[in-house]
C-alpha cells in the first residue's frame, strides 16, 4: 500500500507541509518496498482556483490509498473520498515522524474536511 505526504521538501527528513492543495510536492511512500518517489505539485502553486481538487487528483493517480497532510478542505476531500483515499491529519514535523505515527496507529482517519476552502 502507498501513502502520500504533502511536503515542502524531497526526502523523509523534509517537513510535512500543512497545506494540501498548494504544497510544493508529494512524497509517495510504498509500505511494501519501503521506497518512495516525489511528485511535484508546483503547477498548483499558481493555480487561480481548484488547487485542492487538482492536488487530490494527483494523489489519486499516484495510486496512494492514504494521504497524510496538515489540513484538507472540502472539495479536495470530496475527490479523495470518491476515489477511496483515506485522509489523516498530522501535526507539524518531518515526513518521517508522520510515517512513524501512522505505523504506530497514532493517526486517526478523518471523516470530513477539517478546514474551509482557502483557509491559509
Amino acid at each position: 500500500m502507498k501513502i502520500a505526504f504533502s511536503t515542502s521538501g524531497s526526502n523523509l527528513d523534509a517537513p510535512l507541509d500543512s497545506r494540501f492543495g498548494r504544497c510544493a510536492s508529494f512524497l509517495i511512500y510504498d509500505l511494501e518496498t519501503d521506497q518512495f518517489e516525489i511528485i511535484s505539485n508546483l503547477q498548483n502553486l499558481t493555480a487561480a482556483q481548484g488547487a485542492g481538487i487538482q492536488a487530490a487528483e494527483t494523489v489519486v493517480r499516484s495510486g496512494a490509498q492514504a494521504l497524510i497532510t496538515g489540513h484538507c478542505g472540502p472539495k479536495a476531500f470530496k475527490v479523495l473520498s470518491a476515489a477511496g483515499v483515506t485522509v489523516y491529519n498530522a501535526a507539524e514535523g518531518t515526513v518521517h515522524a508522520a510515517l512513524n505515527a501512522y505505523k504506530a496507529g497514532q493517526l486517526p482517519p478523518t471523516s470530513s474536511a477539517d478546514v474551509e476552502g482557502h483557509w491559509s
Partner: peptide, 9 residues
Amino acid sequence: RYNAIIVPG
C-alpha cells in the same frame, strides 16, 4: 482550465 471537472476514480 478551471478544475471544475475531475476524474478521481
